[in-house]
Design a protein around this nucleic acid. Structure first.
Lengths: 224, 224
DNA sequence: TAGATTGTTAATCGATTAACAATC
DNA sequence: TAGATTGTTAATCGATTAACAATC
């Protein structure tokens, strides 16, 4: 019933990034109090264009009734199943430093269908530790464990200078998708998906926007 | 000389996110060995379109010689000054949990012109700690310290359920730009810049891409 | 019924890519 | 000179937004 054949052409990144937003908002609503929700209502809450929301929802959901909108709980299900949140993907994390540990301890990914199974680190003093319930193994075990556990997602949280070599190892271990938190451009075979999470890029956007704003408002600067 | 009046119309997010990529690559080169670099060379290294690189560089740099390309060190300077990496912006961080601490300890932001001056946390057992050389204060001191230190950037690393209220406090404290790591849509006055760093959004892109790939390759699944 | 909302087709907007003359 | 690269103008592509008939 909620099975919606998603054989459609590849969906744009923009849409894929908005869907979790909708989901997050919908989940914040009380399913018992609110039975249905309209695209314009979602758009208003998230400050988006209503046609955009309607089109996005049309991709994931079949339903939608004029006048009333979408059945809330059904819509939540549709988005979740579209994004694959309902079946778990296991991942390995390489680099149990500060950021790596933060990700290992963060429980929020599980509801997004991602389960970090094990971690790896090159530092012997970290190996053997238990972080967020995940055990840390030496990097030498990487390939063996990935193959054995049939894991295809790798999270990369090592320092910049080790990122490429770890990337190579991940590829060698049969990893198909790499979530890269290291501030480097990785070179990987083109059939391997690389999703970069480079905070410096976001920071650049933020700083520049702030600078523009200050320049416009005449750089009054000091305590406005 | 490297002062390039950047009064141009607001630059697109896409460009702003690529500039740090260029910078990162250029910095990885040996300034003494390589004196100049061409747009096509950068494009090839980062797997981008060469016209795109050329246009991006034209925004930040005045120079560029046919046949040779751009003077490497000058180009680095141009990008850095365009992005404002050369004058430091101070920021406060609220929420010294795992992620907050990782950011506090990360030294890479300084070279991007961001200096986290102090941190805040609601938890008394964390207050008073020193993380990455930054002291943790109680949230009650937020407004006072922001005003006193004339800080206008806030980094938000608190749990989802506290994000909106902390956002309100930041706004009240005179913060002009918020870098939001909490997985929630924040509501803020429209003159306040909100830059979201929502990892769930990236994860959705990664998982979906992986799923698509598997579906295409016939879901052979098990150890390829 | 009247009116809000739906899905969809058309118009607009912006970003990427291609084409090309100018230059060292 | 020949050829690679530059900056820029034009063409393409894709995403957002507007317009509108259909529906409960």
């Amino acid at each position: 019933m909620s099975d919606h054949v998603s054989n459609s052409a590849a969906v744009s990144v923009h849409v894929l990034r908005r869907l979790p937003q909708y989901l997050n908002y919908l989940k914040s609503l009380d399913t018992r109090e609110i039975r249905s929700i309209s695209a314009p209502a979602i758009a208003k809450a998230l400050q988006l264009n209503e046609v955009q929301v309607r089109k996005d929802l049309a991709i994931v959901s079949a339903a939608g009734k004029p006048r009333t909108g979408f059945a809330l709980s059904a819509l939540i299900n549709d988005i979740e199943s579209y994004l694959g949140y309902d079946n778990v993907n296991e991942a390995v994390l390489v680099g149990a430093g500060q950021l790596g540990r933060a990700l290992l301890s963060y429980s929020g990914f599980e509801s997004c269908g991602l389960k970090i199974a094990v971690a790896f680190d090159a530092d012997d003093s970290v190996v053997g530790m238990d972080i967020g319930g995940k055990k840390v193994f030496p990097v030498s075990k990487l390939k063996d464990l990935c193959k054995r556990m049939n894991i295809h997602i790798g999270i990369l949280t090592v320092p910049a200078d080790q990122a490429q070599s770890v990337c190579d190892r991940l590829v060698d271990a049969g990893i198909l998708a790499i979530w890269n938190f290291a501030p480097v451009h990785l070179t990987a075979p083109e059939d391997v998906i690389v999703q970069n999470e480079n905070m410096a890029h976001s920071l650049a956007v933020l700083s520049k926007r702030l600078k523009e704003k200050r320049d416009v408002s005449g750089y009054a600067g000091q305590n406005r």
